[in-house]
Write a protein that binds this DNA or RNA. Structure first.
Lengths: 165, 165
DNA sequence: CCAATCTCAGAAGTACTGAAATGG
DNA sequence: CCCATTTCAGTATTTCTGAGATTG
């Protein structure tokens, strides 16, 4: 996590603020919110010496069971290349196991260990708290609304991407 | 803009999809949406050989008039260090002018040129179209709702940050 | 002497490309 | 021979740190 924001974004002397043109620009708001989400969730996960990708991989494994790296890449949208390093880190800590697949020897089978399962429980709690902190100003209904709207945008562009292939 | 997505995100063979635990996670949806926004807006601006930061700086200058780099940094949230390069690029193309401030010789005054004003008009159109493309699946009312919700989240964390100082 | 501004060099995380090696 | 998988090496972009030089 780059600089947990104990640092010095320049002081807000000027009382002009963000230009109108940018203030309500959805793409900009998404960027700012996403950055805040990264800080909040990233900070929470750092308490357990974990990163977002660790959580994504663990959640995928817990839900779909042992999987190859290529499958994990598809489920989590982590690039196959980058996944290698993530699995290395998790395997080093005994959170997952990497073993060759006897049925298809090109593949590795990644399996969640008992220790990994306990680790994931802890991460779940931390991530849950982080969502609450992130969405603190919104009511329960509003959070659901935001989630629904974002889901529709994401799904729409996913579908378009699939068409193009 | 990294690879305008003519590339090969691994094929969607598996019909398992994203784990439930991640599917509706606000922080994840924000990240995905923000990435899509970057691609859409970034791609649009690339048509005018511009980037998001160029647009942010130009919008700030058009609205608040000539400003120092430190002021621009505060208004756009671009780091003071990074702003140097942005201003260099814009100045090289005759879109802004950088001149020492006679009143405070530590500062540079950055001014939008006539050419810069025309350039900004073009960027405004491109960015507007990109918002429409990004939010295509949402009705006008839903877009307003999304904007309002995101604004409240951003403002809340901005306020908290200010308190902490 | 302290604070603000501009600048540069660079770290670190993220996102992605390309290709080699192995196997189906 | 073509395709999938894992891995490596490396690029590009963004965000942020630290420090030097200049001026208030």
């Amino acid at each position: 996590m780059p600089g947990m924001n104990t640092h010095d974004m320049p002081p807000p002397d000027d009382r002009l603020g963000t230009p109108e043109r940018l203030r309500a620009l959805p793409s900009r708001l998404l960027g700012l919110c996403s950055a805040q989400a990264d800080r909040t969730v990233g900070g929470a996960l750092a308490q357990a010496d974990a990163r977002r990708w660790h959580y994504a991989v663990l959640a995928a494994l817990a839900e779909s069971g042992p999987a190859s790296q290529a499958q994990l890449s598809r489920h989590t949208r982590i690039y196959r290349s980058d996944l290698v390093a993530v699995i290395n880190e998790l395997a080093d800590r005994g959170i997952v196991e990497r073993a060759p697949d006897p049925g298809d020897r090109r593949r590795n089978v990644i399996t969640l260990t008992a220790r990994g399962r306990r680790h994931l429980e802890r991460l779940d709690a931390l991530v849950g708290d982080a969502q609450d902190e992130l969405l603190a100003p919104l009511s329960r209904a509003e959070r659901a609304q935001l989630t629904a709207l974002l889901t529709r945008v994401v799904d729409h562009h996913d579908a378009r991407r699939k068409e193009e292939r």
